[in-house]
Simulated scan of single mutants.
Amino acid sequence: MRMKFSKTLTCAVFITGAMLFATQSVADPFTITSQLIGDPRPENPDNLIVDVTITGDTTSATTYWTVDINSPMHPDVKLDAFFFNLNVDASDVSFSNLDPSTWSVASPATNAAGSGGADFDFEADSSNPAINVTNSQDLTFEATLLSGFWNVDLFLNAKESESNDDWLGTFQLGAHLQSLTADYRRSDSGFAAGYYEGGGEPIPEPVTMLLFGTGLVGLSGLRLRKKQ
């Protein structure tokens, strides 16, 4: 009886330890969003909207970006350049798989077009102005850390760029847009700006849930043998 009890106890301790080890490596998916909107200066176009979505998890070195122009009031809108900051050194991140393929990301981005002199860490633009991002064509790319994994603080704690124009203030992301619908007092180009928002909740992987359940079964068996 003592030997059986000892084996059961050893098994339960082993399973519980494995369960705790697996929990430490649980993926923590996150989604960061930002809605860039046109600046409020009266001489600039309004109804400018650019939606940015970034997905990743805390056990991965790669995040996936989508820049989606959503400005139906400007049917001919084109993205001239996309600007953003990250709470990482520019030398610690690389960018790949850009679509359209003529786009690329460079650093730093000083005096961003249309921003009132704001400086950013990164700028995405196209080597071929004829191929651009529009209401119907998103810009997508991947950002990969050369060491370590992504987490939400690397976005939410990114620096704020500051415009020389008091109307604009500060922002973490920006977009210079062209070919806008203009009237008698508005330009045919403009700047939209915004901040990172969002985060995520830990989602246990299937193996973690299996180990958790197995650990509970082992502990239940231990209690039964104690009663016997």
Rank of each mutant, 00 (worst) to 15 (best):
E123N: 06
A124Y: 07
D125M: 15
S126P: 11
P129V: 15
I131Y: 13
N132I: 13
T134I: 06
N135C: 03
Q137T: 15
T144F: 01
L145G: 01
L146N: 11
L146E: 09
L146Q: 08
L146C: 00
F149N: 12
N151T: 06
L154N: 01
N157G: 03
A158T: 04
N164Q: 12
D165F: 08
D165M: 04
G169D: 06
G169M: 08
F171C: 00
F171H: 03
Q172K: 05
Q172E: 11
Q172R: 06
L173V: 04
G174H: 08
G174F: 03
H176L: 00
Q178W: 07
S179P: 05
L180M: 11
T181Q: 14
A182F: 13
D183N: 15
Y184P: 14
S187W: 15
S189E: 14
A192N: 04
Y195S: 01
Y196R: 05
G198D: 00
E201R: 04
I203Q: 12
P204T: 08
V207D: 13
M209F: 10
L211T: 08
F212G: 06
G213H: 05
G215K: 05
L216P: 00
V217P: 03
V217R: 06
S220E: 07
L222G: 02
L222V: 01
R225M: 08
R225E: 00
